[in-house]
């Protein structure tokens, strides 16, 4: 089965990940800009990072037949330095012009401070001004519900197209208001601290497949890109068809990310030929 991993921090992972992902059907990954584990001090550090994910990383993925796309952002954890944020934002348009940059992300909130909210606003505004997609991080653990509510409040005060915005890391207590407001949502599968594959399938069964993305994140912390495949297995094991799995784990990323024409991978349908099912495309 062909799979798209829509949230994957490739620079934190080894080539072995790419090899195993390719062997398990992953055809594309999208890499949002991430926190480095420490707060960066210089705009140039971000610019080199954006060059790494938009220029070098696609070549590494290509060795395994995987398409690599990316996003640019100042991480919410680094938003307490508004001057730095402004200086980095000034460079976004040059990256929007690059062939694999899909938009602005992951912006969002961490502690939901005033500076973080202003940074989120600035990120969304520059994305909308340049016709870019937006990927929004919502806080972890205890701050999840409050931070997600705050994200929705910030977005409600801006002129945005909800269909071009993906609110990530939703869980059972935050999914409904995000979907009701018309946004795309993402389930992030982590071994311990976010959503589990089983709970993700529970939510797919409850809320359907529309405007839902499933991803593993997979970064330098305790994480595992193959929780995505684990989720697919759980989904199929519960009796959902191959086409339904393709809709969620391949076609939905195509639908959301494909709003940026640079993401040119098309949704696929399974055709039945005689008794054998083959992929039409």
């Amino acid at each position: 089965m062909q799979i798209i991993q829509p949230h994957y921090h490739a620079i934190a992972r080894t080539a072995q990940d790419y090899e195993r992902m390719a062997m398990s059907g992953v055809v594309a990954v999208a890499e949002p800009a991430f926190w480095a584990g420490f707060d960066r001090l210089y705009p140039e550090t971000f610019i080199d990072y954006f060059r790494q994910i938009s220029e070098f990383e696609p070549t590494r993925a290509a060795q395994y037949g995987i398409r690599h796309f990316c996003w640019v952002a100042v991480n919410p954890k680094e938003a307490e330095n508004p001057t730095l944020t402004r200086e980095v934002l000034e460079h976004f348009p040059e990256f929007f012009a690059k062939p694999t940059v899909l938009g602005v992300g992951e912006t969002g909130l961490h502690k939901s401070t005033k500076n973080e909210c202003e940074s989120l606003e600035a990120h969304v505004e520059i994305a909308m001004k340049h016709g870019q997609l937006v990927l929004i991080h919502t806080p972890h653990l205890a701050d999840k519900a409050h931070g997600t509510k705050k994200v929705l409040e910030v977005l409600a005060g801006l002129k945005v197209d909800p269909e071009r915005i993906w609110i990530d890391h939703v869980e059972e207590q935050t999914i409904r208001p995000c979907l009701d407001a018309g946004y795309w949502v993402g389930f992030t599968l982590y071994p311990i601290t976010k959503c589990s594959p089983k709970r993700a399938v529970d939510m797919l069964e409850k809320y359907g497949h529309e405007r839902i993305l499933v991803n593993s994140s997979a970064d330098w912390g305790p994480s595992d890109p193959f929780t995505l495949q684990e989720c697919i297995l759980e989904f199929r094991r519960r009796g959902h068809s191959l086409q339904e799995a393709i809709e969620v784990f391949h076609n939905n990323p195509c639908r959301f990310l494909g709003q940026n024409p640079k993401f040119d991978i098309q949704p696929i349908r399974v055709e039945t030929v005689g008794t054998a099912a083959v992929a039409a495309e």
Partner: peptide, 20 residues
């Protein structure tokens, strides 16, 4: 703590899944 939180969420989801 986080591991226990995770395990309890799985149990809660098991009950919700059953009721659904």
């Amino acid at each position: 703590f986080l591991e226990s939180r995770h395990q309890l969420l799985e149990i809660a989801a098991y009950f919700d899944r059953y009721e659904a």
